[in-house]
Design a protein around this nucleic acid. Structure first.
Lengths: 161, 161
DNA sequence: AATGAAATGAGAGCGCG
DNA sequence: CGCGCTCTCATTTCATT
Protein backbone atom coordinates (compact mmCIF):
# COMPACT_ATOMS: atom_id res chain seq x y z
CA UNK A 1 0.00 0.00 0.00
CA UNK A 2 1.42 3.36 -0.90
CA UNK A 3 0.67 5.93 1.75
CA UNK A 4 1.35 9.55 0.99
CA UNK A 5 0.57 10.82 4.44
CA UNK A 6 0.65 14.58 4.13
CA UNK A 7 1.04 17.47 1.77
CA UNK A 8 4.75 17.85 2.27
CA UNK A 9 5.35 21.42 1.05
CA UNK A 10 9.05 21.14 0.36
CA UNK A 11 10.99 24.33 -0.06
CA UNK A 12 14.39 24.86 -1.63
CA UNK A 13 16.20 24.20 1.67
CA UNK A 14 14.43 20.87 2.10
CA UNK A 15 15.34 19.77 -1.40
CA UNK A 16 18.99 20.64 -0.98
CA UNK A 17 19.08 18.73 2.28
CA UNK A 18 17.44 15.71 0.68
CA UNK A 19 19.89 15.78 -2.21
CA UNK A 20 22.73 15.50 0.29
CA UNK A 21 21.14 12.82 2.48
CA UNK A 22 20.30 10.78 -0.57
CA UNK A 23 23.98 10.63 -1.39
CA UNK A 24 25.35 10.28 2.15
CA UNK A 25 23.16 10.33 5.22
CA UNK A 26 26.13 10.28 7.59
CA UNK A 27 26.95 13.85 6.64
CA UNK A 28 27.08 15.94 9.83
CA UNK A 29 24.23 18.40 10.21
CA UNK A 30 26.74 21.16 10.62
CA UNK A 31 28.24 20.37 7.22
CA UNK A 32 24.80 20.22 5.66
CA UNK A 33 23.97 23.54 7.26
CA UNK A 34 27.04 25.16 5.78
CA UNK A 35 26.18 23.76 2.37
CA UNK A 36 22.61 24.98 2.33
CA UNK A 37 22.89 28.13 4.41
CA UNK A 38 21.21 27.11 7.67
CA UNK A 39 22.28 26.32 11.21
CA UNK A 40 22.62 22.74 12.39
CA UNK A 41 19.45 22.77 14.53
CA UNK A 42 17.42 24.11 11.63
CA UNK A 43 18.69 21.27 9.47
CA UNK A 44 17.90 18.79 12.22
CA UNK A 45 14.32 20.03 12.57
CA UNK A 46 13.71 19.77 8.86
CA UNK A 47 15.12 16.27 8.70
CA UNK A 48 12.96 15.19 11.61
CA UNK A 49 9.89 16.72 10.03
CA UNK A 50 10.51 15.04 6.69
CA UNK A 51 11.09 11.70 8.35
CA UNK A 52 7.76 12.01 10.16
CA UNK A 53 5.99 13.02 6.96
CA UNK A 54 7.40 10.00 5.18
CA UNK A 55 9.40 12.00 2.67
CA UNK A 56 12.44 10.23 4.10
CA UNK A 57 11.34 6.62 4.16
CA UNK A 58 14.43 4.94 5.52
CA UNK A 59 18.13 5.28 6.23
CA UNK A 60 20.03 2.33 4.93
CA UNK A 61 23.46 0.97 4.12
CA UNK A 62 24.02 -0.04 0.52
CA UNK A 63 25.91 -3.30 0.31
CA UNK A 64 27.98 -4.89 -2.41
CA UNK A 65 26.09 -8.01 -3.53
CA UNK A 66 29.26 -9.61 -4.87
CA UNK A 67 30.95 -9.33 -1.49
CA UNK A 68 28.07 -11.26 0.00
CA UNK A 69 28.32 -13.98 -2.59
CA UNK A 70 25.25 -12.73 -4.42
CA UNK A 71 26.89 -11.93 -7.69
CA UNK A 72 24.14 -12.49 -10.23
CA UNK A 73 21.42 -9.94 -10.91
CA UNK A 74 18.46 -11.08 -12.99
CA UNK A 75 15.45 -9.34 -14.46
CA UNK A 76 12.24 -11.21 -14.99
CA UNK A 77 9.02 -10.29 -16.72
CA UNK A 78 6.13 -12.37 -15.53
CA UNK A 79 2.84 -12.77 -17.32
CA UNK A 80 -0.06 -14.28 -15.44
CA UNK A 81 -3.09 -16.12 -16.75
CA UNK A 82 -5.85 -14.73 -14.61
CA UNK A 83 -5.74 -11.18 -13.34
CA UNK A 84 -8.44 -11.25 -10.68
CA UNK A 85 -7.81 -9.00 -7.71
CA UNK A 86 -7.43 -12.00 -5.44
CA UNK A 87 -4.84 -13.72 -7.59
CA UNK A 88 -2.87 -10.54 -8.15
CA UNK A 89 -2.71 -9.93 -4.42
CA UNK A 90 -1.60 -13.48 -3.93
CA UNK A 91 1.19 -13.11 -6.45
CA UNK A 92 2.26 -9.81 -4.91
CA UNK A 93 2.62 -11.22 -1.43
CA UNK A 94 4.42 -14.28 -2.74
CA UNK A 95 6.96 -12.17 -4.60
CA UNK A 96 7.34 -9.75 -1.72
CA UNK A 97 8.11 -12.62 0.63
CA UNK A 98 11.02 -14.03 -1.38
CA UNK A 99 14.32 -12.63 -0.06
CA UNK A 100 16.03 -13.11 -3.42
CA UNK A 101 13.59 -10.65 -4.95
CA UNK A 102 14.96 -7.16 -4.44
CA UNK A 103 12.27 -5.36 -6.34
CA UNK A 104 8.84 -6.19 -7.61
CA UNK A 105 6.60 -3.96 -9.69
CA UNK A 106 3.07 -4.59 -10.88
CA UNK A 107 2.99 -3.13 -14.36
CA UNK A 108 0.91 -2.46 -17.42
CA UNK A 109 2.04 -3.59 -20.84
CA UNK A 110 3.04 -6.92 -22.28
CA UNK A 111 3.86 -8.28 -18.84
CA UNK A 112 2.13 -8.09 -15.48
CA UNK A 113 5.07 -8.15 -13.10
CA UNK A 114 8.67 -7.12 -13.35
CA UNK A 115 11.12 -8.53 -10.85
CA UNK A 116 14.71 -7.73 -9.96
CA UNK A 117 16.38 -10.75 -8.44
CA UNK A 118 19.79 -11.28 -6.84
CA UNK A 119 21.23 -14.77 -6.37
CA UNK A 120 24.60 -16.41 -5.70
CA UNK A 121 24.51 -18.59 -8.81
CA UNK A 122 22.34 -19.59 -11.74
CA UNK A 123 21.44 -22.82 -9.98
CA UNK A 124 19.73 -20.76 -7.29
CA UNK A 125 17.76 -18.87 -9.89
CA UNK A 126 16.73 -22.11 -11.49
CA UNK A 127 15.49 -23.37 -8.14
CA UNK A 128 13.62 -20.12 -7.64
CA UNK A 129 11.89 -20.37 -11.00
CA UNK A 130 10.74 -23.86 -10.15
CA UNK A 131 9.31 -22.70 -6.89
CA UNK A 132 7.85 -19.36 -7.98
CA UNK A 133 6.90 -19.80 -11.64
CA UNK A 134 6.58 -23.47 -12.54
CA UNK A 135 5.10 -24.15 -9.13
CA UNK A 136 2.44 -21.50 -9.67
CA UNK A 137 -0.19 -22.47 -12.18
CA UNK A 138 -1.33 -18.90 -12.64
CA UNK A 139 1.98 -17.99 -14.31
CA UNK A 140 1.56 -18.08 -18.06
CA UNK A 141 5.03 -17.09 -19.15
CA UNK A 142 8.21 -15.45 -17.90
CA UNK A 143 11.21 -13.98 -19.66
CA UNK A 144 14.66 -13.85 -18.10
CA UNK A 145 17.36 -11.23 -18.55
CA UNK A 146 20.70 -11.79 -16.89
CA UNK A 147 22.65 -8.67 -15.99
CA UNK A 148 26.18 -8.57 -17.34
CA UNK A 149 26.90 -5.10 -15.99
CA UNK A 150 25.26 -2.96 -13.34
CA UNK A 151 25.71 0.29 -15.19
CA UNK A 152 23.77 2.37 -12.71
CA UNK A 153 22.20 1.21 -9.50
CA UNK A 154 20.27 3.25 -7.01
CA UNK A 155 16.96 4.50 -5.77
CA UNK A 156 17.90 8.15 -6.10
CA UNK A 157 15.10 10.48 -6.95
CA UNK A 158 15.67 13.67 -8.94
CA UNK A 159 15.25 16.44 -6.39
CA UNK A 160 15.50 19.52 -8.56
CA UNK A 161 12.29 21.15 -9.70
CA UNK B 1 33.02 0.10 -13.07
CA UNK B 2 32.48 -2.54 -10.42
CA UNK B 3 35.36 -2.72 -7.99
CA UNK B 4 35.51 -5.65 -5.64
CA UNK B 5 38.52 -4.52 -3.69
CA UNK B 6 39.30 -7.41 -1.40
CA UNK B 7 38.41 -10.94 -0.40
CA UNK B 8 36.14 -9.89 2.43
CA UNK B 9 35.92 -13.04 4.58
CA UNK B 10 32.66 -12.29 6.28
CA UNK B 11 31.76 -14.24 9.38
CA UNK B 12 28.38 -14.71 11.03
CA UNK B 13 28.82 -11.54 13.13
CA UNK B 14 29.53 -9.45 10.06
CA UNK B 15 26.48 -10.77 8.29
CA UNK B 16 24.20 -10.06 11.21
CA UNK B 17 25.56 -6.54 11.45
CA UNK B 18 25.02 -5.99 7.74
CA UNK B 19 21.48 -7.26 7.95
CA UNK B 20 20.74 -4.59 10.54
CA UNK B 21 22.52 -1.74 8.77
CA UNK B 22 20.79 -2.62 5.55
CA UNK B 23 17.48 -2.01 7.26
CA UNK B 24 18.47 0.98 9.40
CA UNK B 25 21.97 2.39 9.47
CA UNK B 26 21.15 4.84 12.25
CA UNK B 27 20.93 1.98 14.72
CA UNK B 28 23.34 2.71 17.60
CA UNK B 29 26.37 0.44 17.76
CA UNK B 30 25.43 -0.49 21.27
CA UNK B 31 22.04 -1.77 20.12
CA UNK B 32 23.66 -3.70 17.29
CA UNK B 33 26.11 -5.16 19.77
CA UNK B 34 23.32 -6.39 22.02
CA UNK B 35 21.55 -7.93 19.05
CA UNK B 36 24.54 -9.84 17.72
CA UNK B 37 26.38 -10.54 20.96
CA UNK B 38 29.33 -8.18 20.71
CA UNK B 39 30.47 -4.98 22.39
CA UNK B 40 29.89 -1.65 20.71
CA UNK B 41 33.58 -1.09 19.85
CA UNK B 42 33.79 -4.52 18.24
CA UNK B 43 30.79 -3.62 16.11
CA UNK B 44 32.42 -0.34 15.21
CA UNK B 45 35.65 -1.98 14.11
CA UNK B 46 33.78 -4.40 11.91
CA UNK B 47 31.71 -1.66 10.32
CA UNK B 48 34.80 0.40 9.64
CA UNK B 49 36.58 -2.57 8.14
CA UNK B 50 33.65 -3.45 5.88
CA UNK B 51 33.31 0.14 4.74
CA UNK B 52 36.99 0.19 3.79
CA UNK B 53 36.70 -3.13 1.99
CA UNK B 54 33.76 -1.85 0.00
CA UNK B 55 31.30 -4.36 1.39
CA UNK B 56 29.38 -1.34 2.62
CA UNK B 57 29.25 0.86 -0.44
CA UNK B 58 27.26 3.81 0.83
CA UNK B 59 24.96 5.10 3.54
CA UNK B 60 21.94 6.77 2.07
CA UNK B 61 18.47 8.08 2.81
CA UNK B 62 15.64 6.48 0.86
CA UNK B 63 13.15 9.10 -0.29
CA UNK B 64 9.52 8.87 -1.33
CA UNK B 65 9.41 9.68 -5.05
CA UNK B 66 5.77 10.75 -4.82
CA UNK B 67 6.58 13.34 -2.16
CA UNK B 68 9.09 14.85 -4.55
CA UNK B 69 6.60 14.98 -7.38
CA UNK B 70 8.17 12.00 -9.13
CA UNK B 71 5.21 9.69 -9.00
CA UNK B 72 5.61 7.52 -12.08
CA UNK B 73 7.96 4.55 -12.21
CA UNK B 74 8.64 3.03 -15.61
CA UNK B 75 10.45 -0.06 -16.73
CA UNK B 76 12.06 -0.09 -20.16
CA UNK B 77 13.73 -2.79 -22.21
CA UNK B 78 16.02 -1.42 -24.89
CA UNK B 79 17.29 -3.32 -27.87
CA UNK B 80 20.16 -1.84 -29.86
CA UNK B 81 21.11 -2.40 -33.48
CA UNK B 82 24.85 -2.66 -33.29
CA UNK B 83 26.56 -4.09 -30.25
CA UNK B 84 30.14 -3.01 -30.79
CA UNK B 85 32.10 -2.26 -27.63
CA UNK B 86 32.28 1.40 -28.53
CA UNK B 87 28.57 1.79 -29.05
CA UNK B 88 27.67 -0.13 -25.93
CA UNK B 89 29.95 2.08 -23.87
CA UNK B 90 28.38 5.10 -25.45
CA UNK B 91 24.89 3.92 -24.58
CA UNK B 92 25.97 3.08 -21.02
CA UNK B 93 27.35 6.51 -20.32
CA UNK B 94 24.35 8.17 -21.91
CA UNK B 95 21.94 6.21 -19.72
CA UNK B 96 24.06 6.67 -16.62
CA UNK B 97 24.05 10.43 -17.13
CA UNK B 98 20.27 10.84 -17.20
CA UNK B 99 18.99 11.75 -13.72
CA UNK B 100 15.57 10.25 -14.45
CA UNK B 101 17.19 6.86 -14.86
CA UNK B 102 17.48 5.28 -11.44
CA UNK B 103 18.89 2.00 -12.59
CA UNK B 104 20.50 0.72 -15.76
CA UNK B 105 21.64 -2.81 -16.43
CA UNK B 106 23.34 -4.25 -19.48
CA UNK B 107 21.75 -7.66 -19.97
CA UNK B 108 21.68 -10.81 -22.04
CA UNK B 109 18.46 -12.08 -23.56
CA UNK B 110 15.91 -10.57 -25.85
CA UNK B 111 16.93 -7.06 -24.84
CA UNK B 112 20.28 -5.38 -24.33
CA UNK B 113 19.48 -2.86 -21.63
CA UNK B 114 16.95 -2.69 -18.87
CA UNK B 115 16.15 0.67 -17.33
CA UNK B 116 14.20 1.77 -14.29
CA UNK B 117 12.98 5.33 -14.71
CA UNK B 118 11.23 7.76 -12.38
CA UNK B 119 9.44 10.83 -13.73
CA UNK B 120 6.85 13.37 -12.57
CA UNK B 121 4.43 12.65 -15.44
CA UNK B 122 4.04 10.69 -18.64
CA UNK B 123 4.86 13.79 -20.65
CA UNK B 124 8.32 13.76 -19.12
CA UNK B 125 8.78 10.14 -20.06
CA UNK B 126 7.68 10.92 -23.58
CA UNK B 127 10.25 13.69 -23.79
CA UNK B 128 12.88 11.33 -22.45
CA UNK B 129 12.10 8.69 -25.06
CA UNK B 130 12.46 11.28 -27.79
CA UNK B 131 15.82 12.32 -26.47
CA UNK B 132 17.22 8.92 -25.52
CA UNK B 133 15.63 6.45 -27.91
CA UNK B 134 14.27 8.17 -31.00
CA UNK B 135 17.22 10.53 -30.94
CA UNK B 136 19.66 7.62 -30.91
CA UNK B 137 19.83 5.81 -34.20
CA UNK B 138 21.44 2.77 -32.63
CA UNK B 139 18.24 1.99 -30.72
CA UNK B 140 16.28 -0.62 -32.62
CA UNK B 141 13.32 -1.05 -30.32
CA UNK B 142 12.15 -0.39 -26.79
CA UNK B 143 9.28 -1.71 -24.72
CA UNK B 144 7.67 0.27 -21.94
CA UNK B 145 6.11 -1.03 -18.75
CA UNK B 146 4.43 1.47 -16.48
CA UNK B 147 4.38 0.54 -12.81
CA UNK B 148 0.94 0.56 -11.24
CA UNK B 149 2.24 -0.60 -7.89
CA UNK B 150 5.67 -0.73 -6.33
CA UNK B 151 5.13 -4.03 -4.58
CA UNK B 152 8.66 -4.25 -3.26
CA UNK B 153 11.43 -1.74 -3.65
CA UNK B 154 14.93 -1.93 -2.31
CA UNK B 155 18.50 -2.84 -2.89
CA UNK B 156 18.60 -5.28 0.00
CA UNK B 157 20.85 -8.24 -0.46
CA UNK B 158 20.13 -11.59 1.17
CA UNK B 159 22.71 -11.87 3.92
CA UNK B 160 22.10 -15.37 5.23
CA UNK B 161 24.34 -18.16 4.05
C1' DA C 1 6.72 30.65 13.33
C1' DA C 2 11.10 29.66 12.39
C1' DT C 3 15.80 30.75 13.38
C1' DG C 4 20.47 30.77 15.63
C1' DA C 5 23.55 30.58 19.82
C1' DA C 6 24.70 28.21 23.66
C1' DA C 7 24.15 24.26 26.95
C1' DT C 8 23.23 19.41 27.51
C1' DG C 9 23.50 14.53 26.46
C1' DA C 10 24.12 10.52 23.64
C1' DG C 11 26.99 8.05 20.75
C1' DA C 12 31.25 7.39 17.89
C1' DG C 13 36.09 6.91 17.94
C1' DC C 14 40.55 5.24 20.10
C1' DG C 15 43.96 3.61 23.25
C1' DC C 16 44.38 0.47 26.98
C1' DG C 17 44.58 -4.11 29.30
C1' DC D 1 37.82 -8.77 22.20
C1' DG D 2 35.95 -5.75 26.08
C1' DC D 3 36.53 -1.66 29.14
C1' DG D 4 37.34 2.91 29.77
C1' DC D 5 38.11 7.61 28.22
C1' DT D 6 37.68 11.61 25.11
C1' DC D 7 35.61 14.20 21.69
C1' DT D 8 32.46 14.92 18.03
C1' DC D 9 27.92 15.45 16.87
C1' DA D 10 22.94 15.18 17.72
C1' DT D 11 19.43 17.20 20.55
C1' DT D 12 17.21 20.57 23.70
C1' DT D 13 16.61 25.05 25.55
C1' DC D 14 15.95 29.66 25.07
C1' DA D 15 16.25 34.40 23.38
C1' DT D 16 15.47 36.80 19.02
C1' DT D 17 13.60 38.49 14.42
Amino acid sequence: MSRSVKSPQLDAFDRKILAILQRDNSTPQRTIGDAVGLSAPAVQRRIKRMAEEGVIQANVAVLDPAALGQSITIFVEVEVISETAKQIEEAKSQFAAAPEIQQCYYVTGEADFVLVIVVPAMADYEALTRRLFFGNNNVKRFRTFVAMDRVKVGLSVPVER
